[in-house]
């Protein structure tokens, strides 16, 4: 599925965009499409899972592959879903707002 990711600060500047679309496979899509899928995340899914969810770790992986200019910054970034920080194991429901949060420097 296509996931939109909001970008800020250096991430926005490195890509030249404040929002990017990435292709991330959901579990059932992978099962149905088999070898057709080119998702970088396919090996992380088994035969079970929710077609309407993707893992945060898969979003990060997809960002690394589809936007290599972010590669250096990504390891220090956090992901926020609907304005809340989430860990790599969290699953992101379809339609949720996903944001890439580089190390913050307010104050």
């Amino acid at each position: 599925m296509i996931i939109e990711v909001l970008l800020f600060a250096a991430a926005r500047e490195l890509t030249g965009r404040d929002v990017v679309e990435i292709e991330v496979a959901a579990a059932e899509q992978h099962g149905e499409r088999g070898a057709d899928t080119t998702s970088p995340c396919e090996e992380e899914y088994g035969d079970t899972g929710n077609a309407n969810c993707v893992l945060v770790s898969c979003i990060i992986k997809a960002l690394t592959q589809q936007y290599p200019e972010l590669k250096q910054l990504l390891p220090s970034c956090r992901i926020a879903v609907d304005c809340q920080y989430v860990g790599p194991d969290a699953s992101v429901p379809l339609g949720a707002e996903v944001a890439l949060i580089p190390p913050v420097s307010g104050g």
Partner: peptide, 13 residues
């Protein structure tokens, strides 16, 4: 102030 600098998504250029 310490918590704000760690958690609040604000960035300076």
């Amino acid at each position: 102030m310490n918590a704000l600098k760690k958690e609040v998504p604000i960035w300076k250029r």
